[in-house]
Design a protein around this nucleic acid. Structure first.
Lengths: 141, 141
DNA sequence: CTCACTTCGGTTGTGCACAACTCAATTGCG
DNA sequence: CGCAATTGAGTTGTGCACAACCGAAGTGAG
């Protein structure tokens, strides 16, 4: 029996700790590619959409420009993405993967599957978790 | 139907987003007290134990001294905790709440309950979530 | 057309996370 | 005992998060 911490019955703390634990599981694989987890999450959206505005990327990741602008600048400096101002609306910045950025996609294709296996949860557990986490995300508007 | 983001089937992203959403639910109440969520989590352990070393606090929160040292320094500067070197082992630093720190406890006593209600989950859902999140935390050693 | 208003991306400042490192205090092996 | 190894806390550097703010670009009511 572990000693009591005073953190029992705090779903918030459990989420906070589980999120960091899960990210640390991704870290070795992502480190090898020179990526952080938030950069990887952003790239998943960019790969999936092919072409996305900073605004839409923020909506998908639930992050604002204060977080994304420097993150995208670092990805651009690494030659992984392009940033181009929109021609019709010059406020908008379009993000696209470079060739190097597209190649990265193949190197991490099996990552979620591989790491999900390490958790040793049933398909049912994943579905339950998905439902509950979505509800929590929804509750915070 | 929301547009596809490329983040489906990624438990890691769901945890990451849910954790931040949950923390943002705590933020208004904690802002009013001048606390951040990690500071609040640390205080819960300190209140519960009464007296704790930096090392044990780190074990409870799963945080290292690189995160805790500056966090505790800020709590000390706010007059919320005391930090004293151990007399038997001078490497150890003991953390205790000040009077002001102890008073804070009463002001946030109902916080987890109150915010858990906002999630509108059943007791069963909480138990399931607790089990699954614990297993995930365990899987990352 | 004009001007207030909104939108988009960016910057600044603060506070985590975490790796890598330092250094003093303690421990334990020979 | 002597000294190498370990331990505990702290520092440094990088990269998120997020609030608060900025300025340029677009929008719309009068």
């Amino acid at each position: 029996m572990q000693e009591s911490t005073g953190l029992e019955q705090m779903i918030c703390f459990e989420l906070y700790a589980a999120s960091r634990a899960m990210t640390s599981l991704y870290r070795p694989a992502l480190d090898a590619l020179g990526l952080t987890y938030p950069q990887y999450a952003a790239l998943r959206v960019i790969w999936h959409r092919g072409r996305v505005t900073v605004r839409d990327l923020g909506a998908a990741l639930q992050l604002d420009s204060g977080t994304l602008s420097p993150l995208l600048k670092r990805l651009e400096n690494q030659g992984i993405i392009h940033r181009t101002r929109g021609t019709d609306d010059e406020r908008v910045v379009w993000i696209t993967p470079t060739d190097k950025g597209s190649e990265l996609q193949h190197q991490v294709a099996d990552l979620p599957q591989r790491l999900a296996c390490a958790l040793d949860l049933s398909a049912e557990d994943f579905a339950t978790l998905h439902t509950l986490l979505s509800r929590i995300r929804g509750a915070a508007h």
